[in-house]
């Protein structure tokens, strides 16, 4: 059954990227449905993170097309892509180490009046909005159960809490779609489950679309509708988790080769 165009949030058309002589991403085409949770799996070095860097604008030299909500993203800077509603997290959490948890989580809020140096000296102008952002951030941090850490620097929180904080940072911008690069790597198993439950909640309540790189397949497969499998820069398989596990190439890619 052909998909309605409006159903597609993200579409990649024949995307390729080489580093020197190595094709890190080799002719990748894929689609992500609006409001879905889609997985991206594959062995280390298969090009998953490079693909995320291409989509989010960190890597701007590539061939092919990236289309988000009907708009071509090719060549756009990361901040413009974020403004369009496409956010991302990083494999190793990239947090603002000199700032508290609360400050970290408030940076991502869009259109803050007080971010203009001409308005900043006049608190009356931006304080009402600041309080709205603070309230929203507080709710978000409570959902992620890290609100009690609000005045701690990131160096004093656990690895799992860093992952959650990174999620809070990017959710502050109310993204329509999120690219998560290994949201549960280095996190205790129970917490990994919790992270996916918050992702699912976010998806259901706010309609956010998720595209997730993950190595913990048993956790991932419980929450995704569709999975793409990458190997040596190519998509070698796609489908529902139950179908994927039966594919010969997938088993080969993970166990042999």
């Amino acid at each position: 059954m052909p998909l309605d165009q409006n159903d597609i949030t993200l579409r990649l058309e024949n995307v390729s990227k080489s580093f020197g002589g190595i094709k890190a991403v080799n002719g990748v085409s894929l689609t992500v449905r609006r409001g879905s949770i889609t997985g991206l799996i594959g062995p280390n070095g298969s090009g998953k993170s490079t693909l995320f860097n291409i989509i989010s604008g960190v890597e701007r030299k590539f061939s092919g097309n990236v289309v988000f909500d009907g708009k071509r993203l090719n060549g756009l800077a990361p901040h413009k892509i974020f403004d369009l509603g496409l956010g991302r997290t990083f494999q190793t959490p990239r947090l603002f180490t000199g700032m508290t948890v609360l400050e970290n989580a408030m940076v991502g809020a869009k259109n803050q009046r007080g971010e203009s140096p001409l308005r900043a000296p006049f608190p009356k102008d931006w304080e009402p909005q600041e309080m709205e952002v603070a309230k929203k951030t507080q709710d978000q941090l409570k959902v992620l159960e890290i609100a009690q850490l609000y005045d701690k620097p990131p160096s004093e929180i656990s690895g799992g809490q860093m992952k959650l904080l990174q999620l809070a940072n990017v959710l502050a911008g109310d993204p329509k779609m999120l690219l998560l690069d290994e949201p549960t790597a280095g996190v205790a198993p129970r917490l990994a489950q919790d992270i996916f439950l918050s992702i699912e909640k976010q998806c259901k309540e706010k309609g956010t679309t998720f595209f997730i790189i993950e190595h913990r397949l048993q956790v991932l497969f419980k929450h995704v509708q569709k999975v793409y499998v990458m190997h040596e820069g190519r998509i070698i398989s796609e489908g529902a988790p139950s179908e994927i596990v039966k594919h010969r190439e997938v088993i080969d890619a993970y166990l042999g080769a």
Partner: peptide, 8 residues
């Protein structure tokens, strides 16, 4: 990089 990916 993180700031840029948060729209700055």
């Amino acid at each position: 990089v993180a700031a840029e990916s948060l729209g700055k």
